[in-house]
Computed example of a mutant assay.
Amino acid sequence: MGLQNLTNDQKMNWEWLTKPGRAIQETKFVDPITLRELGLRAPVQRLMGKVGLQGFLDYEAHTYECYTLEFLSTLTKGRDEEDPS
């Protein structure tokens, strides 16, 4: 992963999102809409099932949409090939 070919606006956003001391409240709840829209529901279910945490996917609570979007905007493609398993 890495930051490459960012616009000036993206660089400024990255600096703001990663500034030291910025507090983010974590949550144990997942957003089923986000998982579905990203196509991650099945892989996350499979992963959680393998580690015995399937029950966490049944907890429902509103997530912090703004923080979720901020986090997802920091992700970059980490692999060139999909994991076949």
Rank of each mutant, 00 (worst) to 15 (best):
G39D: 06
M48F: 05
D58V: 00
R22E: 06
V44D: 08
A42E: 15
Q10T: 03
Q4K: 14
E65I: 07
L17C: 13
P20K: 15
L57S: 04
L6G: 03
L35A: 06
T34V: 15
T74N: 11
P43E: 01
Y64W: 10
L3E: 13
L69Y: 12
M12C: 03
R79N: 11
L17G: 02
R46Q: 15
G52N: 03
I24G: 04
E37P: 09
R41C: 09
G39K: 05
Y67Q: 11
L57R: 02
H62M: 10
L53S: 12
G21F: 04
N8P: 00
Q45F: 01
L57H: 00
I24L: 13
T7W: 00
K28H: 05
Q10G: 01
T68L: 15
I33N: 14
L3S: 14
L69N: 14
T34M: 13
N13M: 10
K28Y: 12
I33F: 07
Q45M: 11
Q10V: 03
T68I: 04
R22K: 12
R79K: 07
G2F: 01
M1E: 15
K11C: 05
K11S: 08
E65W: 06
V30K: 09
D31L: 02
T18H: 12
F56I: 02
Y59V: 01
F56D: 00
L75Q: 14
E60V: 01
S85R: 08
K28F: 07
D80H: 09
Q10I: 08
L17V: 04
G55L: 08
G55E: 04
D58W: 00
E26N: 06
L40C: 09
T68S: 15
D9R: 11
N8M: 03
L75A: 13
N8C: 01
V30E: 05
I33K: 14
G21E: 07
L57V: 02
L3W: 15
